[in-house]
Design a protein around this nucleic acid. Structure first.
Length: 840
RNA sequence: GGGGGAGUGUCGGAACUGGCAGACGAGCAUGACUUAGGAUCAUGUGCCGCAAGGCGUGCGGGUUCGAGUCCCGCCUUCCCCA
């Protein structure tokens, strides 16, 4: 009965059968516990690469495992289908973005199906479908109506290659490059739409409702960048108020000058005539430097005196106002008080321009002198030169936890010259994009009524198909008068203009987990019944690169939806869940996979020609082998370099399993004597494997789970030429092996399951139950150490007593040699089930 | 400069709350079967040593009967932020 294992044959066969029998249709079932497993949806670039497989196949394994564990699992898939590459293809190859996108989707859908994942394709959502982006637009209007979306003129980051603006999160690295194309961004003053994500800064800093990797939590916390301090109102001699934010109000008495950002609106008004030429030249030059250059601690500080003075409200002192580019308009109010004695950058600046340095925090046991100190002192100590605060203790703590800071804030508030304040690094989310292939922002500009949202009933605002693409990448919407001009929904004027910008595609992907629930629903963004059952997402998987983009946006989006009342019709079916907890966090648990590098340890890229193409690999080895190899070869969170030889290991494993199942079926019931110890040994290994594989898949340790299955394979091979193959223990072992493999290599498991007469489908069988007592070893290797060095290993019964163990150890020949001529042992350490250490 | 990871054979990687370092696999070596082998099977494979034995988890200290694991100080490297 030697059938050959031809993966490609059985894989397409079962994929079709699974689809025909609706095996992966997931339906609401209030009687079963639910599990919403989600993996980040791909951009339809045209080809599924190995990175997609690496992200998705293990996620699929985990979802399949949860299903066998008795959960009703939803594992959907879709496409994040708006975006620039489609438009660039249109410009370059004269193919419409829609056509390009949808033909890519159909190819990628085929490739995804070849993976054999349990995706429920009936729930597929494509963000560029009008039935999808209608609701993206609906959300925009919801946010607008609730004051969460606004338009303002602002200096924004602009990618000249993509010819569009970017959100702050989408500008990467020290040299500020576009997240997509790595071109260096430039600053532009533009009128743009923003979402008030900063209103949610504190809410987003609360991670108590989610179990996400610490790394992501740290990155988001860092990104939001909360700093506690005070806002203090300085005034110019002219009488302008100059509020400054400081984290160190305890050093207010040490402020010897002020610095304004070159873009500060008051600069021109404050500058005296004598200084005007110099200041103007400086401001112009500063505009050309990048933010990073300006903020760098190493860079030589530059600046010019405005000629104006301000009054320090705490002591009435008159201090000079300078302009310097190390102060950012985006930080606080664009002006700072400079305390050179206790701030490194202020110190460097003061020394360079000969400005006064006054010590107001004296460290214990030291005596700093402003005239001679060689570096700013930023630690704690005792306040000096600070009037009534002299002697107040200042610690290293931030904000109110610092007694000095806390007392000064109280005093500022009592005297109404300042108040406690919190500053964030987070900026509002810029969502306007000056491109065609995105969801149009559903707003109308009327000369009389101003900005008017498109009525909800008129959604979606459809993208016109008949557009011309120009090489500059300028949005074709601007060149389409029929689309551009419309009727004002409020006053009926016919020369109102549509908003011509489209939305950041991160907007589309911020809520796709809700659209999957009911992609065809046309009266609401999602079906509340489905939402009541499935939400929130229980397990999310995807790349870490989205830590401060998608993963932050979607947390914001869910909170904004909550506050707009979008979740009101949803009544959680799970009595353990509170509506609030569900709708604050979109995804309860998150796991991030690493990156697969090419064999040369470089990034895989077509231009380098070092890509491992999944289609080729499936053709050569089969999908099961590719899946298993990706899970076996790396620590999932870590990733690593592809090894084209390494896959042989799992190919052999699958071939061996095939032979074990198909060649060693017991053919006769002939009673042969099989030693009971052999049966027990086999059963023990089987149960050990169940327990280990279960624990491993539970915690995303796919590589070790497959290693354990290979060990079971090795054990089965040892028994395969013995009468053990005629026992029910053997048959049970084979059944178990297939069940444990089912989530990892679904096709071969299904095929062999059918071969041994199992009921369709293996993927609907319960996960095997491991039994600790069957798994327990009968004998153990007792390690005997002398002074911590291993000197002997002795097989002993597992339930050996401490005194027996010590005695056996002391009587061992190998040990005797070390004990000879020595004094009696000082100490004998016994670790149950492991070792005896004899200390001389 | 701040935050977060990571350093274990030739390679990918194992090692639970401190208890046999190197599971599992790749590769390699030797042998077998073969006209043939990028198939299959067997054996071996951390380093030094003929052996007894010694040395080994980035480096240097420490705690402990015992440290890849805990503590202190470094080095290298990756990511994020400045």
């Amino acid at each position: 009965m030697a059938r050959e294992y031809i993966p490609q044959e059985i894989e397409t066969k079962w994929q079709k059968h699974w689809e025909d029998t609706g095996l992966y249709r997931s339906k609401v079932d209030p009687n079963a516990p639910k599990h919403y497993a989600l993996t980040m949806l791909p951009y339809p670039s045209g080809d599924l690469h190995i990175g997609h497989w690496y992200a998705m196949a293990p996620s699929d394994t985990r979802a399949r495992y949860m299903r066998m564990r008795g959960f009703n699992v939803l594992f959907p898939m879709g496409f994040d289908a708006f975006g620039l590459p489609a438009e660039n293809a249109a410009i370059k190859r004269n193919i419409h973005p829609k056509e390009w996108t949808y033909s890519n989707i159909s190819n990628m859908r085929r490739q995804l199906k070849s993976m054999g994942a349990m995706f429920d394709w009936a729930r597929e959502a494509i963000s560029s479908d009008p039935k999808y982006y209608r609701w993206t637009q609906w959300f925009f209007i919801q946010f607008f109506n609730h004051g969460l979306a606004y338009k303002k003129m602002a200096p924004v980051d602009f990618c000249p290659a993509c010819n569009t603006t970017l959100a702050r999160e989408q500008v990467w690295g020290e040299d500020r490059r576009c997240e997509r194309c790595e071109t260096r961004v430039i600053k532009k003053n533009l009128n743009q739409w923003f979402f008030r994500i900063t209103d949610y800064a504190d809410d987003l800093l609360d991670f108590s409702g989610i179990q996400w990797p610490e790394r992501v939590v740290a990155m988001q916390t860092n990104w939001i960048g909360r700093s506690e301090g005070a806002e203090v109102i300085f005034t110019t001699e002219r009488g302008d108020e100059l509020p400054v934010f400081t984290t160190r109000p305890d050093t207010l008495w040490g402020a010897t000058f002020m610095v304004m950002a070159p873009e500060h609106p008051l600069v021109a008004a404050l500058t005296t005539d004598e200084q005007r030429t110099e200041v103007q030249a400086y401001v112009e030059q500063a505009a050309r430097a990048s933010d990073i250059e300006r903020e760098s601690a190493e860079r030589e500080k530059t600046g010019v005196f405005t000629g104006a003075y301000a009054i320090n409200p705490v002591n009435g002192e008159r201090i000079p106002i300078w302009v310097a580019d190390y102060v950012m308009m985006t930080y606080g109010s664009g002006a700072i008080m400079a305390v050179p004695a206790h701030d490194e950058r202020d110190f460097a600046f003061a020394r360079k321009y000969g400005l006064a340095v006054r010590v107001v925090i004296q460290p214990e046991g030291e005596s700093l002198d402003g005239a001679t100190m060689s570096a700013a002192y930023v630690g704690g100590g005792v306040m000096v030169n600070s009037d009534q605060f002299n002697g107040t203790v200042v610690t290293d703590d931030k904000g109110r936890r610092n007694p000095g800071i806390s007392q000064v804030i109280d005093w500022l508030e009592q005297n109404q010259i300042g108040h406690e304040a919190i500053s964030y690094r987070l900026r509002d989310w810029l969502i306007s994009r000056q491109r065609y292939w995105g969801a149009p922002i559903p707003m109308i500009h009327c000369p009389d009524c101003g900005i008017v949202p498109v009525p909800m009933d008129d959604l979606p605002v459809l993208l016109p198909d008949d557009v011309k693409f120009v090489p500059t990448g300028e949005s074709p919407l601007k060149l389409h008068p029929a689309w551009k001009f419309t009727t004002c929904p409020q006053c009926g004027r016919e020369d109102a203009e549509r908003e011509m910008d489209t939305m950041d595609t991160f907007m589309c992907s911020s809520w796709y987990q809700y659209r999957y629930l009911s992609p065809d629903e046309d009266s609401y963004p999602f079906d509340p019944e489905e939402a009541s059952y499935w939400l929130p997402v229980d397990q999310y998987t995807g790349g870490i690169e989205h830590a401060t983009m998608h993963l932050l946006y979607t947390r914001f989006f869910t909170r904004a939806m909550r506050d707009c009342g979008v979740f009101q019709p949803v009544r959680p079916m799970n009595p353990d869940l509170q509506p609030d907890t569900i709708f604050t966090e979109p995804m309860t648990r998150l796991h991030n996979q690493g990156i697969i590098l090419a064999e040369d340890r470089e990034k895989m890229s077509k231009s380098r020609g070092n890509v491992a193409d999944p289609d080729d690999l499936v053709e050569k080895y089969g999908a099961d082998a590719v899946r298993a190899y990706l899970m076996f070869a790396f620590k999932w969170e870590q990733g690593g370099p592809w090894d084209s030889q390494g896959i042989n290991g799992v190919v052999r494993f699958l071939n061996d399993v095939w032979s074990l199942v198909t060649e060693y079926q017991s053919v006769s019931d002939a009673q042969m004597t099989v030693p009971a110890s052999a049966i027990r040994a086999l059963e023990r290994k089987v149960h050990q494997t169940i327990l280990d594989v279960t624990a491993d898949i539970e915690e995303f340790s796919f590589n070790t789970s497959i290693a354990k299955l290979m060990e079971l394979r090795n054990t089965l091979q040892e028994f395969s030429d013995t009468p053990v193959v005629n026992t029910s223990a053997w048959r049970q072992a084979i059944r178990t092996l297939l069940l444990l493999m089912a989530p990892i290599t679904p096709h071969i498991a299904e095929e062999l399951w059918q071969f041994i007469g199992g009921e369709y489908s293996i993927h609907q069988q319960p996960w095997p139950e491991g039994n600790e007592s069957i798994a327990a070893e009968e004998t153990i290797t007792l390690v005997v150490q002398v002074n911590g060095k291993v000197r002997d290993r002795i097989q002993v019964p597992a339930d050996i007593s401490e005194s027996e163990a010590k005695q056996i150890a002391l009587e061992s020949d190998a040990i005797g040699r070390f004990l000879q001529g020595q004094k009696p042992p000082r100490k004998i350490v016994y670790v149950p089930g492991r070792l005896v250490n004899i200390v001389l």
